[in-house]
């Protein structure tokens, strides 16, 4: 009985940590620009795909990972420079469409540069499941959770202890004021895209041994990541983590105790309910409307 519940929780933890990593990327960009980047899932895909393709070509995993992270960051910066910055003053909806366009473009590019097959990476620490209280967990899942924790700590340090991080946070509160204080808003925007691309790539690499990857892998991850970020409260890193885990665990428990066919629906119903009572998500700030 308990072992069963524990196994469901482990299943939820594995998916949830993946969603949380995806959600964090949304949170970072939102924080500094109030842009929702629907191409976040594609960052994850590019990180995973380029690593998998390089490893398949004989590049050692650490080197491949590093290169993949760089490639993804480059894509992130290019996206910001050529697509987001020129439209910085456009309507929110317009920017959403731009990022959706970017995600379609990147998927199209990936299917030409690489292929349409599924690819995998070897698990970092082997495939021997760990036995805990009668339930099992793969070491790779711990890698995913671990990376999520490291990332959240690093982000906290960056935003609260470094000058540039504080500047980014300031920009998110009031762009004009930040600009008047001499903060380079453009630079902040670019760094936020580079950062979330880095995060996406790292996520893509640790997740690939579990979920595999192909040129369309970013769609689902983007969707779940967005859900996680909104559930947690936009722009809140901790919120994205909690949101991701909540979605993952809700899905696992729903398939365990209710119906596996409706597990995704259950997760969305929970999100809707939370939003009915907390219209800014679990940890979101109450925004004030400009009149």
């Amino acid at each position: 009985m308990f072992a069963e519940l524990l196994q469901y929780l482990f299943a939820g933890l594995t998916s949830g940590a993946i969603y949380a990593l995806a959600g964090l990327g949304f949170a970072i960009i939102y924080n500094s620009s109030h842009v929702i980047n629907f191409a976040q899932g594609e960052f994850i895909m590019i990180g995973g795909m380029s690593t998998a393709m390089m490893v398949a070509a004989g590049v050692p995993l650490p080197v491949a990972s590093l290169l993949a992270v760089l490639v993804t960051m480059l894509v992130g910066v290019a996206l910001e420079k050529f697509a987001i910055e020129p439209a910085r003053n456009a309507d929110v909806t317009t920017i959403i469409i731009i990022t959706i366009g970017a995600s379609i473009f990147l998927r199209g590019l990936a299917q030409i540069v690489w292929d349409k097959e599924f690819h995998s990476l070897p698990a970092f620490s082997g495939e021997t499941p760990l036995n805990v209280g009668g339930a099992t967990l793969m070491p790779q899942s711990i890698w995913v959770v671990g990376v999520a924790v490291v990332v959240i700590v690093a982000l906290w340090w960056f935003f609260n202890r470094t000058l540039f991080g504080k500047a980014m946070l300031a920009t998110s509160f009031n762009r004009l004021a930040a600009q008047l204080m001499g903060i380079g808003v453009k630079k902040v925007l670019m760094v936020s895209f580079a950062l979330s691309a880095l995060l996406g790539a790292v996520g893509g690499i640790v997740v690939t041994p579990i979920t595999f990857t192909n040129y369309e892998a970013g769609i689902m991850l983007g969707l779940k990541g967005f859900s996680a970020a909104v559930l947690g409260g936009l722009g809140n890193g901790m919120g994205a983590i909690v949101g991701g885990l909540a979605v993952g665990i809700a899905e696992a428990l729903a398939s365990g105790y209710l119906s596996s066919a409706y597990k995704d629906a259950v997760a969305f119903v929970i999100i809707l309910f939370v939003l009915f009572f907390l219209p800014n998500g679990l940890f979101g700030k109450k925004g004030t409307d400009r009149v």
């Binding site: 997740v207 428990l253 398939s255 596996s260």
Partner: peptide
């Protein structure tokens, strides 16, 4: 399960 589910141990446990 859905085609893109990262983990189906819950279903298999059942």
């Amino acid at each position: 399960y859905s085609p893109k589910d990262p983990d189906v141990t819950a279903q298999l446990t059942k």
